[in-house]
Amino acid sequence: MAHTFETSSNAGGANHWVRALGRRLIEIPPAYFVLAAVLVAIALLNPNLMKPQVLLTFIRQSAPLGVAVLGQLMVMRARSIDLSIGGVFIITNYLLTSGLLGGQPVAMLVLVPLAVGLVVGLVNGALIALVRASAVIVTLGVSIILTGIVLFMSSGRPPGRVPDELRAIANARIDVVPVPVIIWVVAAIIVAVLLRTLIFGRYLTAIGSNPQAARFSGLPLPRIVVTTHVLSGLLAALGGVMFTAALGVGSVKFGPEIMMNSIAATILGGVTFGSGRGGVAGPFVGVVAFALLFALMTVFGIQEPGKLIVQGTVIAVAAIIYGMRTR
């Protein structure tokens, strides 16, 4: 906002390399520092928890969020935002626990929510990119509508239970590694590789840097934004299936929490809001850091309100660090 001017980037002197190191450090997403701090805290306060088996169990709880974050990070790199992730989780939960899909094979239990996620992503993307409405409002509005639909259909009461096949998958492990964590890691690797190697990734970088120049260079700006929202809708639906399978029952309460966590982890992971920077690894670590942080808080008996406070503070602090850096 203030007028600033380029400052020297190659000022000489004895402390040159110290500054260079400082600049490198500040380029590292805060997620890594938070993760390191949490691990240290766990090791000091409760060494019993420092076993792969235990840590992975904590991380398993965040695998659904981690999958959704893969979508969020793409959307945010395209200078948009997806606040409808919570709504997609809720409607997925309803589809799987209401008995609407009773007796269907597992493939259908995954495909139907994915189809819903696709439609939600398309609606979000169309309103944002083609109608050019504000992304915050559109996705919040869509989230509200989805939640309202579920409340209306279920008359406000959480519906029944998740089919057993899904539950079994959510609880399975390969060796010590829980299956949901494997799904998450595989999805993250696929997204990272695609962003690195495909034209789509290059376009995303360009749009994040300067949308106007991207348009003048012939990039199909609206189509890219729609695509990121569709991908985010799909990944949110997949996350929703994983979340519901792990939860086991219907619920209408967790939507806002998931939405906030997806943004918190993405920002913590170094995706700078509205400037298009960031990778896949940072937000991945962000999710892990949050998972362990909340686990640690639970161990110490800190309740939901305390977690809200920590979560909000972490978002603010991470955003402030970027803000000061880019000023």
Partner: peptide, 11 residues
């Protein structure tokens, strides 16, 4: 070089 190519093409 990249512009005009489909999203799913290799860069």
């Amino acid at each position: 070089v990249e512009t005009g190519r489909p999203f799913w093409a290799l860069a």
